[in-house]
């Protein structure tokens, strides 16, 4: 299959625009634009692939507080919390949570408008002992923080 892309716009940039434009068409009248589901990132089956689908390589940032249990007895219910210090890292618009060894590493992604505090609590499934990543987007740049969680009983229910 040969595909040509117009000059001056990368393949990823082109994909991004397609997603943004289709969202704009699908949701007319929405004041808040950041509602497109990151399908490519959700479909990724490896961590690197999922991270690449979210954007350019994230940098570790200390302003992100990522809390996970050190040891999870039940991988099916692992409580996690992502908070961001707004002074250290302002203008965060997106928070994603990835679980390295899951069949699809991206577990959840949240779009956050400016008036909402960057603070998310939820529970995810973790298939086996591995590293969990909290990736946030601020001004188009990705930042992350990671934590390892040991799982004594897998999250896939057998």
């Amino acid at each position: 299959m040969t595909t040509t892309y117009s000059k001056g716009i990368s393949r990823r940039g082109w994909l991004r625009w397609t997603v943004i434009l289709s969202a704009a068409v699908a949701l007319p009248g929405r004041v808040w634009a950041a509602v497109a589901r990151p399908e490519a990132a959700f479909g990724a089956t490896a961590l690197d692939e999922a991270l690449a689908a979210l954007g350019d390589a994230p940098q570790v940032h200390e302003g992100i507080q990522f809390t996970t249990p050190d040891i999870a007895e039940n991988g099916a219910v692992v409580p996690i919390r992502v908070g961001v210090d707004a002074e250290a890292l302002p203008n965060v618009s997106k928070v994603s949570v990835l679980v390295e060894m899951n069949p699809n590493p991206l577990a959840a992604s949240f779009d956050i408008p400016p008036s909402t505090e960057v603070y998310i609590e939820t529970r995810v499934k973790v298939a086996q002992t591995c590293t969990l990543y909290a990736v946030v987007e601020a001004d188009g740049q990705l930042y992350m923080q990671s934590r390892e969680t040991k799982v004594t009983l897998g999250g896939c229910g057998g």
Binding site: V35, L106, A108, S109, F110, D111, Y119, E121, T122, R123
Partner: peptide, 24 residues
């Protein structure tokens, strides 16, 4: 007014819990 939009995959636990904070 929307205060958050979440996109979830199947890796969110059964009977999902969600906690968040917004200003105002």
């Amino acid at each position: 007014q929307p205060v958050m939009q979440g996109h979830w995959g199947a890796a969110v636990s059964a009977n999902p819990f969600l906690g968040l904070r917004f200003a105002g």
